[in-house]
C-alpha cells in the first residue's frame, strides 16, 4: 500500500472518530431536550412542586441550586485565589511546595461522592452544621477549590516576568506588584476557572446528597442552616424513588433540561470571556 493511500485511510478513521464525539453530544442533548422539553413552561419554572411532585414546578430547586452556587463561590473563590497567588508568587520552590502541588492535583481527582462523605462527617456531624445550605456549600467549595487554585496559578504564571520587573523598577513592593500587575493581568484567566467551577458545583449530586439536599421542603429556604432542594438531587430522587413514574419521569427530564441550560450558560460565558481575552492579549 502506498503512503498516500495509507494516509487517507488513517485520516478517514480519525475523522469518523472525531465526528462521532459530536454525534454523541448532539444525541445526548437531543435526547434530554426531547424528553424534557414538553413539560417546560412558565409554571414549571416558577411554581412549587404539587401533589407529591407529580404536578406544579421546580422553582425551589432552581433557587436551591442558585443558593448552593453562591455559597460555594463565597467560600471557594477567595480561598482558591489566595492559595493560587501564594503558590504562584510567594511559595519558594521546595519540598513543601511540591507536596502542596501534588495534594491539589490529587484533590482534583478525588471522586465527588467521597467529598460528600467527608462533608457529612466534618461539616454536618462534627461541626454540627446539619444538613444545610452551608454544609453543602462548604463541601462543594472543597470540591471546586483545586480547579480555582489551578486556574489561578496557570493565569498568574502566564503573566510575563517583564511586567513584574517593570513594576519593581518603579519602586513597587511585592504585594503592589502582585495585586496591580499579576492579579489584574491574570484576572480573566482566573475568572474562566471560576465559571468552570460554577458549572461543576451546579451539576454535582453526590457532594450534596448527605450534606445539603432534600427531596421535598415546604417553600423556600429561609436561612443558610436550612435543607434545600437542588436540581441534580431532585432528578436523582424522581428517577429512583418516584412513586408515579409516568408523571415524575418527565419532570426529571424537564429538570435536567433546566440544569443543562444553567451549566451550558455558564460555560458559554466562560468560553466567550476566554476568546475575548485571547484576542485582546497583545504581549
Amino acid at each position: 500500500m502506498d503512503k498516500i493511500k495509507k494516509e487517507k485511510i488513517v485520516f478517514t478513521i480519525i475523522r469518523i472518530i472525531s465526528f462521532s464525539s459530536v454525534v454523541f453530544l448532539l444525541t445526548l442533548l437531543g435526547f434530554i431536550f426531547y424528553k424534557g422539553f414538553s413539560v417546560i413552561n412558565w409554571q414549571f419554572l416558577t411554581d412549587i412542586p404539587r401533589n407529591g411532585f407529580t404536578e406544579g414546578g421546580i422553582f425551589p430547586s432552581i433557587v436551591g441550586t442558585v443558593y448552593l452556587i453562591i455559597g460555594t463561590m463565597i467560600f471557594a473563590v477567595p480561598v482558591g485565589i489566595l492559595a493560587g497567588i501564594y503558590l504562584a508568587e510567594y511559595a519558594k520552590e521546595n519540598r513543601f511546595k511540591n507536596l502542596l502541588r501534588v495534594s491539589i492535583n490529587v484533590l482534583a481527582g478525588v471522586p465527588s461522592i467521597v467529598f460528600g462523605l467527608f462533608g457529612l462527617a466534618i461539616f454536618v456531624k462534627r461541626m454540627h452544621l446539619g444538613v444545610s445550605i452551608i454544609s453543602g456549600s462548604l463541601t462543594l467549595g472543597i470540591l471546586v477549590l483545586p480547579t480555582i487554585i489551578q486556574a489561578t496559578i496557570e493565569a498568574i504564571k502566564s503573566v510575563p516576568d517583564t511586567f513584574r520587573e517593570a513594576s519593581y523598577g518603579v519602586g513597587a513592593t511585592k504585594w503592589q506588584t502582585v495585586y496591580h500587575i499579576s492579579l489584574k493581568t491574570a484576572i480573566s484567566g482566573i475568572f474562566t476557572g471560576i465559571i468552570i467551577s460554577i458549572g461543576r458545583a451546579a451539576g454535582e449530586a453526590a457532594p450534596i446528597l448527605f450534606t445539603a439536599a432534600t427531596f421535598y421542603t415546604r417553600g423556600l429556604p429561609t436561612s443558610i442552616f436550612d435543607k434545600v432542594m437542588a436540581l441534580p438531587y431532585i432528578i436523582y430522587g424522581l428517577i429512583t424513588e418516584g412513586t408515579f413514574p409516568d408523571k415524575q419521569v418527565p419532570i426529571a427530564y424537564g429538570a435536567s433540561v433546566v440544569l443543562l441550560i444553567i451549566v451550558l450558560l455558564f460555560s458559554t460565558v466562560g468560553i466567550i470571556i476566554r476568546l475575548r481575552v485571547r484576542r485582546r492579549k497583545s504581549w
Binding site: F163, V170, W283
Partner: peptide, 19 residues
C-alpha cells in the same frame, strides 16, 4: 529598597509597558 528604586529608575532591554 523601594525608595531606592524610586530614586534610581530603570529602562529595560525589551520595551515592557504594562498591559
Amino acid at each position: 529598597v523601594f525608595d531606592l528604586r524610586r530614586k534610581v529608575g530603570m529602562v529595560f532591554q525589551k520595551p515592557n509597558p504594562f498591559p
